[in-house]
């Protein structure tokens, strides 16, 4: 799978108009400089030799240097330096989406057809229709520009001198016990995380609602009711547990959408993570950065879904015995 992906990303770069050499040089390139660079990059070799070289370099962690995002820096360094920021952001976003989506979906299902149900279903549909970068701007405009409650840009205020340990700013602050730095980093995370959370929220909410509705109609719930079990016991043991199965899969599938959403939200908030680098990469046509970042994003996505499949066994004992 990963091999096929690498082939695809490789082919993607080769498919660029004029080939990678002119893409790397941009409009400034002359015929001679293009030929020289082609030779230097080994582009005069047959295509399969090129691919194996690319694979070889990729396996040893050499993806070349950035041409537009942080010119001259190694692509891998840029990635490692920015990765923690995106992890922090996505984890918070997923947590918000779960914390809000699952209870809301459950409540909506229990009061199906009621005012609360209709209202929250409507809200989730609107959530799907709003472009995430516009929502990010809206949040930034209201809470940062107009009200001034939260910071609008970056990961940390400039006047805070924080010690870096892991690159996870909130974690760094906690580890070094610089509480003001941890709090400040957290506050910087809030707006982008809320904007990003709307993507998984809408889906998690609707899947939870649908799953709970399905389970409520099951025979074993009726049996439990007729046995005279307490409502809370039925809800916790019979309904919620069984309804969580499809929700777990969905959360895994949302990681991909989250990565794409991070490109947009990080750009709006000038949040120096992987997504912002990708956004800049698209804008400035920085192909070495795009190549590696997209490959890694796809691999992460595949791995997460593999983990989700495996976690099935944990959540559903029926699969374990099979």
């Amino acid at each position: 799978m990963v091999l096929v992906l690498s082939l695809l990303v490789f082919a993607w770069l080769r498919a660029l108009p004029g080939g990678p050499a002119s893409a790397l040089l941009g409009d400034r390139g002359t015929e001679e400089s293009r030929a020289a660079l082609s030779k230097q990059l080994g582009l005069d070799q047959p295509i399969f030799v090129q691919y194996f070289r690319f694979l070889g370099r990729a396996l040893t962690g050499n993806f070349g240097n950035s041409t537009g995002v942080q010119p001259g820096d190694s692509v891998v360094d840029i990635f490692l330096q920015r990765f923690p920021a995106t992890i922090e952001l996505s984890v918070l976003a997923i947590l918000i989406a779960i914390a809000v989506g699952i209870p809301l979906g459950y409540l909506a299902a229990r009061r199906r057809g009621g005012l609360f149900d209709n209202f929250s279903v409507g809200a989730s549909l609107i959530g799907v229709a709003v472009p995430v970068f516009f929502l990010a701007y809206l949040l930034k405009y209201v809470f940062a520009t107009k009200l001034g409650w939260l910071p609008s840009l970056g990961r940390q205020a400039g006047d805070i001198d924080a010690t870096r340990v892991t690159g996870f700013f909130v974690l760094d602050g906690i580890l070094t016990q610089e509480w003001d730095a941890a709090w400040d980093a957290f506050v910087h995370l809030l707006l982008p995380a809320v904007a990003l959370a709307t993507i998984p929220f809408a889906v998690i909410f609707r899947i939870t609602r649908a799953a709970v509705l399905d389970v409520l109609n099951e025979d074993y719930v009726r049996t439990a009711e007729s046995k005279g079990l307490l409502g809370t016991v039925i809800r916790r043991r019979h309904v919620l547990r069984n309804a969580m199965l499809p929700v777990v899969t969905t959360i895994g599938l949302q990681i991909g959408a989250l990565l794409a959403g991070a490109v947009l939200t990080e750009k709006v908030f000038g949040f120096s993570g992987v997504g912002e680098a990708l956004a800049l990469g698209f804008e400035r046509r920085d192909y070495p950065v795009l190549q590696m970042f997209i490959l890694v994003a796809a691999i992460v996505y595949v791995l997460v879904n593999l983990l989700v499949d495996l976690s099935y066994a944990l959540v559903d004992p029926r699969i374990r015995t099979r």
């Binding site: 799978m1 991909g256 959408a257 990565l259 794409a260 490109v263 994003a297 996505y301």
Partner: peptide, 8 residues
């Protein structure tokens, strides 16, 4: 194709 996030 599905293994690469759609929007990306």
């Amino acid at each position: 194709m599905l293994s690469i996030p759609q929007l990306l």
